[in-house]
Design a protein around this nucleic acid. Structure first.
Length: 780
DNA sequence: TCAGCTCCAATTTTT
DNA sequence: TTGGAGCTGA
């Protein structure tokens, strides 16, 4: 049999066999998407397509590396152009720099550099930003760029003070970037998209050059990326997009899910292939994922299925506290390892990085090796950026940001005042800051000492610039010596500085390796581009045998035998900032979906009743997403929640209680547990766990109706908890294991006879003998 | 210039 | 609770 089609299912075959014309591959999680893409490339090559005519675009370096590797395996020696969008943008821009007002040696600013630049622009222009932080303004500019709105076309919106400010800042910022011959990340796409849009000759040339374009994770493209690939697919509309709208989780970064949802409108003659068979997860895992994502309205319905085993039921665990959660997970991992699993089989996902600390502690206590994946590290470190800034300046002397970074690092007595005067001079004469340094003698207000220091700095840069064509290690080494940067750190005794020194050594090693791969020197720019466009997330140690901890966002594209997703709590997952926006809520749901579908064999979802957040212990509300899952088939577990089950509720219910305070006479008819004889209540919505959990309703329940009652035999009476009945006060919100939160509307008696009348959201008013009741002040 | 203080805010982060 | 930014005094 043809090896290209061996072991492929019919849908996969169809996608692989496709040659000309647009194609959309809707690929569910674990459906063998990468395989399809690489096999298709091999097939195209076999059909006579020249390798250089094929362009495969990905979002991450990781995905790009992976694809390169697999293309190389399938089609050895082929020179298919596999790249990230940004790297591709950078490459085109170097070729066509003049078209957009850049020089080919332009610098790429990372978020930090562009933020600094923005601040300088605001300061220099004395632009009043009201209460808007530079970050807010930067985000707005970035959003505009993602939507392909250039600085000259930005229109402030009436009634939006932020947009008024942006209208002023954005053009100035953009001008400053161009003056420095620099771009920010967004520009790598914006400039290219804009050029293609404006210049049809260039567009046609590139359309011709890249006749076959493949885009991975199409659901994450933003408008600029969309225009890029669209523009290059006019004369040769052989655009193949693969993606999954259900895994679109970067809407907040400008990804426009409409790009994939409307692909068919865009290319009416498109061939649509659905990859719905999942080869990754068990049936049990897949059903939970599928059921959850069905609650999203904005999607292309897909039916996920698998021939894999049924597997264990998905576990949903309620822990009492975050510490219990961490410990409980660590225990399970330790037990798993003892039973023969490898640490690398396990992964823990969370919504926000802040949740990682307690989990780390749990693993450390067990001595379990782990690795945490966090974005941007190495190249973001101060010392690395300092040294690279010199390289940047050698490569692009107009780069004012690099000049500012290096001019007094290490300290050479050039202070703020001096720099301000130099900047002013540069601005007035329309020259770069470095040129201003060369003319320090002409600058008004500089004293002799300052002039000397500045002149020395300029001379230093000129000296270093002679090295531009040398090997990287030599360039970096010379910088470190000539600037006395290394000396300064070596003399220090602080641990931080020793660390910095170690990092710098690492940079030198890095440079040496680069030199080995790029013999002959003259590759400074290439090296810098790597530093700019690569971050440490990409160096995730796939091989090392450790438990992996990462955010849900970082988890996309990965898979693990055993997965834990923690903190399924209202406010965290979904995140509080998404709660009042339907579209954002759907994105949060997709995020949960992504996390769930990473699991191959075992999956545990959990939440904690109490969580310390921002220094405060809070009682949590379980995530509404849990209600959208098929709980009747999941294994529901409650661990270490003494005497008090958490009660998910809607805060409005609690507020309602405060409006209403009837007083009732004490009714002595109370039972042994201090609870009044059971009155018929409207059946709760059963967010119940355990043996007597009620079957879950088939349809999902909106968050506002979540009113749980977790029935638990043996909720401890107050007397056994050490809380005094006197701890209660009129108007206080209390928790009841069955009825949930309630407000105390009346109190009477004292000590063991102290009674309370409590009004509950759904159960109405009840009376309790406090000492015998399971009531607790809210939050305890 | 820099250390040390106070105050404030607090996702996610492909590049 | 933590971390960053901005301010102040030496």
């Amino acid at each position: 049999m043809d090896p290209l089609f061996a072991n492929l299912n019919p849908a996969q075959c169809e996608a692989v066999r496709h040659v000309e014309g647009p194609m959309l591959v809707l690929a569910g999680p674990g459906s063998g998407k990468t395989r399809v893409v690489t096999h298709r490339i091999a097939h195209l090559l076999r059909e006579g397509v020249r390798p250089r005519e094929i362009l495969a675009l990905t979002f991450t370096n990781k995905a790009s590396e992976e694809m390169k590797l697999r293309v190389e395996t399938m089609s050895p020696g082929s020179r298919v152009w596999v790249s990230t969008f940004h790297r591709f943008g950078a490459r085109l821009l170097r070729e066509y720099a003049g078209f957009v007002g850049l020089t080919p040696n332009f610098t790429i600013y990372d978020t930090d550099d562009s933020r600094q630049t923005l601040k300088r622009v605001i300061e220099a222009g004395k632009i009043r930003t009201a209460h808007y932080s530079p970050d807010r303004i930067a985000a707005a500019i970035s959003a505009a760029k993602n939507q392909l709105i250039t600085a000259d076309r930005y229109e402030p919106r009436i009634g939006s003070p932020l947009s008024q400010i942006v209208a002023e800042v954005y053009p100035a910022y953009q001008q400053r970037l161009l003056a420095s011959s620099a771009v920010d990340f967004d520009d790598l796409l914006l400039h290219v998209a804009n050029m293609l849009y404006v210049n049809d000759d260039v567009r046609a040339e590139l359309d011709e050059r890249y006749r076959f374009i493949l885009v991975d994770e199409y659901q994450d493209t933003n408008r600029a990326q969309y225009v890029m690939v669209r523009a290059m697919s006019v004369d040769h509309p052989n655009l193949a997009a693969t993606g999954d709208p259900d895994q679109s989780i970067y809407g907040w970064r400008g990804a426009d899910i409409k790009n994939i949802l409307q692909f068919e409108t865009d290319f009416p003659q498109v061939r649509v292939v659905r990859l719905e068979q999942n080869y990754r997860s068990t049936k049990a895992v897949l059903r939970v994922a599928d059921q959850l994502i069905r609650s999203n309205m904005r999607r292309k319905a897909k039916s996920l299925f698998t021939d894999n085993a049924e597997g264990d039921p998905v576990k949903l665990v309620q822990y009492s506290t975050q510490d219990d959660e961490a410990r409980g997970i660590a225990d399970q991992i330790a037990a798993g390892i003892a039973a023969g699993r490898r640490p690398r089989d396990f992964a823990i996902f969370y919504r926000v990085n802040a949740l990682s600390r307690v989990l780390e502690r749990g693993l450390r206590e067990h001595g379990i090796p782990y690795q945490m994946i966090r974005g941007q590290e190495f190249y973001q470190r101060k010392e690395i950026k300092d040294v690279l800034a010199y390289c940047q300046l050698i490569n692009n002397p107009r780069d004012d940001q690099a000049t500012l970074r290096t001019i007094n690092t290490p300290v050479r007595g050039i202070g703020r005042k001096t720099i301000d005067r130099l900047s002013e001079f540069a601005y007035q004469h329309g020259i770069s800051l470095l040129d201003a340094c060369r003319e320090a003698g002409q600058v008004e207000g500089l004293n002799a000492r300052a002039i000397k220091s500045v002149a020395q700095f300029a001379a230093l840069i000129d000296r270093l610039s002679l090295l531009a064509g040398a090997a990287l290690e030599e360039i970096l080494g010379t910088i470190l010596t000539e600037t006395k940067y290394r000396e300064g750190l070596q003399d220090s005794e602080s641990e931080d500085d020793l660390n910095r020194l170690a990092n710098i050594e690492e940079l030198l090693t890095d440079a040496r390796q680069f030199d080995e791969a790029h013999p002959g020197g003259g590759h400074l720019e290439e090296y810098l581009e790597n530093a700019w466009l690569v971050n440490e997330t990409d160096s995730w140690e796939t091989e090392s045998d450790k438990v992996t901890m990462m955010t849900l966002h970082a988890a996309k594209g990965l898979e693990f035998p055993v997965v834990f997703v923690v903190a399924f709590e209202q406010g965290l997952l979904p995140h509080e900032r998404s709660l009042n926006d339907d579209e954002q809520m759907e994105e949060e749901r997709r995020l949960a979906f992504v996390g769930i579908t990473r699991a191959k064999e075992h999956l545990q979802l959990s939440y904690a009743v109490h969580r310390d957040f921002r220094g405060q212990r809070r009682r949590t509300v379980p995530s509404p997403f849990l209600l959208e899952m098929p709980r009747e088939e999941m294994e529901l577990v409650s661990i270490g929640a003494p005497g008090g089950w958490d009660v998910p509720t809607d805060w409005e219910d609690v507020h309602d209680l405060h409006d209403d305070s009837h007083h009732f006479e004490i009714d002595p008819a109370v039972d042994d547990h201090g609870v009044e004889a059971e009155a018929p209540t409207e059946d709760d919505d059963s967010f119940a766990f355990g043996a007597n959990a009620a079957p879950a309703p088939a349809k999902s329940i909106p968050a506002s109706q979540v009113t749980t009652a977790a029935r638990l035999a043996g909720a401890k009476p107050l007397a056994a908890s050490g809380i005094s009945p006197d701890a209660f006060a009129q108007g206080m919100t209390v928790m009841h294991p069955e009825h949930g939160p309630g407000k105390i509307v009346a109190l009477s008696g004292s000590g063991a006879n102290r009674r309370a009348t409590v009004k509950f959201a759904t159960a109405g008013e009840r009376r309790f003998v406090l000492a015998h009741s399971p009531l607790r002040p809210a939050g305890r």
